[in-house]
Amino acid sequence: MSGSYSIVYVEDDPGSQKVMRGLVETLGFSIDLHIFEDSSHFIPRVEALDPEPDLFLLDIHVSPLNGFDMLQALRRHDDFQGKMIVALTASVMNEEVKQLKEAGFDGILAKPLKFQDFPRHIQRILDGENLWAIKR
């Protein structure tokens, strides 16, 4: 481990994947970004990662497991239950945010992501802060 962070991002939209790759470049520090295009074999794939991811960014509308399913799987897993798990979604209506919070997510990042603010937000999340009000 070289002092950098490891992030898993589950996202089926190719555009959003590219956006994340671009935004990660704008960060002032290095990130091991692992993008899963779907959620098949989710846990084995996460377990295969070395080092263990520090942060999970989960889109909600993915398959076969949706964001809530993945969250539950991670929370049940001995190694990952304490990790930061943040929803990265375009479903940001109040009721939807409430559902995410109740399900046990550690925060939310809303699509569209904001170019200028992204580095600050991701830093705060990595510092363990629960962001719920980052919306546009």
Binding site: D13, T26, M93, P112
Partner: peptide
Amino acid sequence: LASVSHELRTPLNSIINFTEFVRHGM
């Protein structure tokens, strides 16, 4: 409406951020 919101926000994510990438010389 929820669907519209979701479906519009997803492409906007690409549109805005790709534009920003180009604008910032990336």
